[in-house]
């Protein structure tokens, strides 16, 4: 057993190197030479200059220490975040930013989930949205100008095509603009499918079972404060999301049924979605998984109650 190899350091080192290279070859190096490691989705586009600038900032600030960017093909995870991650989404990610710890939520499907305004406000003060969030504030990125010449050399190094206008336009933008641009295209190459919620409720064509029910209105008011106020304003007079007390629904005058209210809370909106012949701009999140039926109807009851109040004044 005390073979010669333990007396010959050079031979020993060579043998050790060969031994460590076997697993390296099989699991890392050989797969790299095959196409299975280099998939690309059809809809995937390389980053634009401002998006890459945002991604650089994401790396610089170490957002990946708190946020993952990969949804696992597990039922509840897909319900929470959306379609599970596909190998072909990441072809331009150098390197990948999947992360390994979810102190904050996964961001693989955050692109387009909220309007830009939401992100600006949230980055400036996450605690204004969720008082108990531990996310640091990033408002200090505002006003820090991007450098067009730096970004040109970054685009060159990574090998993405760009236009001169695109680069010079960067001088107008700051780091917060860039970060929002990046966050908004994360996962954009994957079509949003409805989450596989256990019950996909159909339109019920019923009026609110709680209409006028004072208890329900009261609990609706609480739910509103917890889930809706930071977008629609404390009095529902509109902020990031539209005024809920006026006689417009999705930018068109004229009332809609309780159903439609129920539906929009249920499903949220996506840009271009058409509801009752009205076109949404997107940005209203879905509450299907976080509010149950009764809670959603209570909210509708509450909204109706404040609309009536508004009309009486």
């Amino acid at each position: 057993m005390t073979g010669g190899i333990y007396k010959k350091p050079v031979l020993f080192a060579i043998v050790a190197t060969v031994v460590i290279l076997i697993g390296t070859m099989v699991t890392m190096f050989i797969p790299m030479l095959t196409s299975q490691m280099h998939p690309r989705l059809e809809d995937l586009k390389p980053f634009t200059a401002i998006q890459l600038a945002g991604r650089d900032i994401y790396q610089r600030e170490g957002c990946n220490n708190c946020h993952t960017q990969t949804v696992r093909p597990l039922k509840t995870e897909v319900m929470r975040y959306g379609e599970y991650s596909k190998a072909g989404e990441f072809a331009y990610d150098r390197p990948f930013l999947w992360g390994s710890k979810r102190t904050g939520p996964d961001l693989a499907r955050v692109g387009g989930k909220y309007p830009d305004a939401w992100h600006y406000r949230h980055f400036e003060n996450p605690q204004a949205f969720f008082a108990e969030s531990n996310m640091p504030a990033y408002g200090w990125l505002k006003g820090k100008k991007l450098s067009p010449s730096d970004m040109e050399s970054h685009m060159k190094a990574i090998g993405f095509t760009y236009s001169v206008e695109e680069i010079s336009a960067l001088s107008e933008k700051d780091e917060l603009d860039a970060l929002v641009s990046y966050v908004q295209i994360i996962g954009a190459s994957v079509k949003k499918k409805p989450a596989p919620a256990a019950v996909i409720e159909e339109k019920e064509h019923v009026t609110n079972p709680f209409a006028g029910d004072l208890k329900a209105i009261e609990s609706g008011e609480k739910l509103y404060a917890a889930n809706c106020a930071f977008c629609h304003g404390p009095n529902a007079k509109g902020d990031i999301g539209p005024d809920l007390t006026d006689d417009e629904f999705l930018y068109v005058k004229g009332d809609v049924s309780d159903d439609d209210y129920f539906e929009i809370i249920n499903n949220g909106t996506a840009p271009g979605m058409v509801e009752e012949g009205r076109t949404a701009k997107g940005g209203m999140p879905s509450f299907k998984d976080s509010l149950d039926r009764n809670e959603r109807w209570s909210l509708v009851a509450y909204i109706r109650a404040i609309q009536v109040k508004g009309a009486q004044k």
Partner: peptide
């Protein structure tokens, strides 16, 4: 002060 990995996406995850 800045570089981009020569590996991308799934492959870069595997190498990392």
């Amino acid at each position: 002060f800045k570089s981009y990995s020569i590996f991308a996406g799934v492959n870069s995850a595997n190498v990392q």
